[in-house]
Each structure stands twice: as structure tokens, then as C-alpha cells.
């Protein structure tokens, strides 16, 4: 209620005062980037490219369902198609605000579901240049945010936001994000290491409208220091498809319903 009141007030003010706060921008960005729709599905093709140009492919179906507001709980279900020897492995994450995630993995070869500890959010997601946090996001309160400037990046008018983690539990010392003023998706992100040197760059390479929701369907994360790159393409992306709660269970982890993963 107070937010909308503020919004009305803001609309009434002269243009130069029409400046969003950094927290607002980041929150809107999270809503567009990580919380779009009630639920979400995509066939994810992730290509890991080494410095020498060698490639590894991870292909998976990713399902997400929101529980609550932006910044609230979410559940993820990931089913792997590639590499070939991990086909039928499935991975489930329950994400909670201000609390460690719960993660489960179904290991087909030993026919067992294993809980996986998730203390280290900045660890690599399936060997890629994305971390678990890059996939599921950070809590808004974990960082201090500041709008550094506003500028045009390509054709996008952007807020340039600097987010500095409050605790030293991540690899980077701060992140600069270019957030589009219209759809609030991050167009580009730069991660600076503890020595203040740029080391990772995220770019949104393709943004597609899906059911009226702008979605990054092609993205790249490049580690400038190791020379490693990860490219991600979303196919068969869809929103609000009515994923049931019982999908996120051990039973379905072992035997995922075809209709969701295909």
C-alpha cells in the first residue's frame, strides 16, 4: 500500500525528482528476472566453453514455482538430459528468504535421493560460470545498493546499480548492473573481485516476450580471468502453466512426470 502511495506521489512530482531508489530498481529487477509469472518452465541448453575452446553441454528442463511475494520462497525442479550418463538425474531446490536452501539430488546409478548441503551459494552451478546465486538470486538485504548513474547501453536506457555485499561470503567485492528502465531485466552485469578487478561479465544476449513477460532467452557469463565462458539458451519457455505443488517431492524426483519435463 505504501509503495503504491509513493508511486502516485512520485508521478505527481516534477521529472527531475522522478528517480527510483536503488532498492526499488533492484527489487523490480528481481521480480522481472527471477520471479516472473506464477511459475515457469524452460528447456535449458547450457554450453561450457573452456579457454582452449573445448565445450561441455548440459541440457535440462528447469521448472520453477513461486511461493509468496518477490523475494519470497521458490521451488526449483531440474531434470537433466545431457551429459548422456546423467540422463534421468533430477535436482530439486527449495529456496527460502534469509535461510539456506534445501537441495536434493536423485542419483540414478545408486537409485538414491541425496540431500545436498548448500552453504556455499557462490559455488559454481553444475560446473558453469554461473553460481547458484546467479540462477536463483540473492536476498535484497544481503547487499547495499546504489544507483551510480543512468546511461544508455546499446538501445536500452539503463539504471547502473552498484550492489555491495554486506558480508564477505562471496567471491566478488561488488557488482555493477545495467538494469533496463522499461522491463527491468539486467542487460549486463560486471563482477569485481576482492582486488577491485573486473573478473566476470554477464550479458543478456536475447530478450524475448513470452506471454507478455520479457524473458532473457540467451545469456552469457564470461570469466575474464580464467578465460572460461558459459552460454545459456532457453527454449520452450513458458509461464503460468499450473505446476502442481506435489511435483516437488521425492517421489517425482525419482520419476518425474513426462508432461513437465518434455
Amino acid at each position: 500500500m505504501r509503495t503504491s502511495l509513493l508511486l502516485v506521489l512520485a508521478l505527481l512530482l516534477p521529472l527531475h525528482a522522478f528517480a527510483a531508489t536503488a532498492e526499488e530498481v533492484v527489487k523490480k529487477s528481481q521480480a522481472a528476472f527471477l520471479y516472473a509469472g506464477k511459475d515457469f518452465k524452460a528447456r535449458v541448453m547450457m554450453t561450457l566453453i573452456s579457454k582452449g575452446g573445448q565445450k561441455r553441454v548440459r541440457e535440462m528442463t528447469m521448472l520453477r514455482k513461486n511461493y509468496g511475494e518477490v523475494g519470497g520462497s521458490q521451488k526449483y525442479f531440474i531434470y537433466f538430459f545431457q551429459p548422456a550418463d546423467v540422463r534421468d538425474m533430477a535436482f530439486m531446490v527449495n529456496k527460502y528468504p534469509a535461510k539456506d536452501d534445501d537441495r536434493w539430488l536423485f542419483v540414478l546409478a545408486i537409485n538414491m535421493v541425496r540431500r545436498i548441503a548448500a552453504r556455499d551459494k557462490s559455488s559454481s552451478f553444475v560446473g558453469s560460470d554461473f553460481t547458484y546465486e546467479d540462477v536463483s538470486g540473492r536476498d535484497l538485504e544481503d547487499d547495499t545498493h546504489a544507483i551510480v548513474k543512468e546511461e544508455k547501453l546499446g538501445t536500452n536506457d539503463c539504471y547502473v546499480v552498484k550492489s555491495t555485499p554486506k558480508a564477505a561470503d562471496v567471491d566478488y567485492s561488488y557488482k555493477i548492473s545495467w538494469i533496463d528502465k522499461i522491463h527491468f531485466l539486467p542487460v549486463k552485469e560486471e563482477y569485481y573481485d576482492k582486488k577491485g578487478e573486473l573478473y566476470k561479465v554477464f550479458t543478456a544476449d536475447e530478450i524475448t516476450d513470452i506471454k507478455g513477460l520479457p524473458t532473457i532467452t540467451k545469456r552469457t557469463m564470461k570469466n575474464l580471468q580464467s578465460g572460461h565462458t558459459t552460454e545459456v539458451i532457453f527454449a520452450k519457455t513458458d509461464y503460468n502453466i499450473g505446476i502442481e505443488d506435489n511435483l516437488f517431492s521425492e517421489r517425482y524426483l525419482r520419476q518425474p512426470p513426462k508432461k513437465w519435463i518434455e
Partner: peptide, 17 residues
Amino acid sequence: QEEIGQYLFMFSMSAKP
């Protein structure tokens, strides 16, 4: 081989690249 592949994949899910 499946077992080995899956163990390695599990390891790579969280380890440093």
C-alpha cells in the same frame, strides 16, 4: 560407467570448475 559419470557430475555440480 553411469555410476562414475553421475558421481563426477555430482561433484562438478558444486565444486570449483
